[in-house]
Write a protein that binds this DNA or RNA. Sequence first.
DNA 1: TGCTTATTGAAATACTATATCAATAAGGAG
DNA 2: CTCCTTATTGATATAGTATTTCAATAAGCA
Lengths: 148, 148
Amino acid sequence: MTFVKPDDIIQLIQERGYRLTTARKKVIGILANHSEFLGAYDIHHLLEQENTRIGVASIYRVLDLLKSLGLLKSEEFGVGGEKYRLDNEHSHHHHSHQLICSQCGHTEELLGECPISHIADKLERDSGYQIEEHWLRFFGVCPLCREQ
Amino acid sequence: MTFVKPDDIIQLIQERGYRLTTARKKVIGILANHSEFLGAYDIHHLLEQENTRIGVASIYRVLDLLKSLGLLKSEEFGVGGEKYRLDNEHSHHHHSHQLICSQCGHTEELLGECPISHIADKLERDSGYQIEEHWLRFFGVCPLCREQ
DNA sequence: TGCTTATTGAAATACTATATCAATAAGGAG
DNA sequence: CTCCTTATTGATATAGTATTTCAATAAGCA
């Protein structure tokens, strides 16, 4: 179970002017009841088990919509394509990513999307720790120091 | 260009009792001439441009062989399946991965395959730094401390 | 040179993902 | 509550990646 309530998502969808359709409700329902990552076809199969037939194309469309609303986390595991999960409040933790020159000490903050969050998620599941923060620090020789 | 010489790979293949075939030589030749990551079908197309026709299945077999010999690095980029590159000596740098309890201070070393190396590789290309080392430290509350 | 068998190529198959388009249904207007 | 507009859907076709199968081939040894 995630901490995102289906009703909140449905409300957001309507607020944004999107229609509230069966496909959207069903796919969101499945995602809300599964804390693990699911592939598009996993969702398709789970819906079939509830005797609900939603076209694969529509499942991808709902996933795209949720992604565009920032409500979805996705991961590429080794095989089997992209997997999706509702983005819940616990999936974020503080981090610090730095690139440090081991010769002159110059430090750069690395911005952009966190490449570690999915590792932290997995680690949280595997270790039982509740991860709050991580540091990622790269040490190397900066271009200026390399010239000398 | 990688720093792995095709001849060294070919020698290793023969030492291990595998036959030296055209498919193996050609695929290794392509990989040795490309420092970027290539998909199986990229290799297939590149070989066609040299008027060499190697079946896709065989390309996958060569890639599997190289992987089993530890000579191949692979990555899943966003789309388009797995990509491969010969593993060169510069692709390794020292690292330390730890999981630390922020309450009791208990520290665990995280073993297993380094999930950061490909980030380091990309960073090296993008930043111009020559990365030598990285630390990845996760801070959280361990299962014992969570019970209290 | 011939033999054994590891290896290959082609085709069939499976799976993920996207584009197309007629049919459908959501939701506002009346 | 009914009608109308059009966003949305489902089925199908298509594309790309990956694996399996099996007869044909060629590598390497005697």
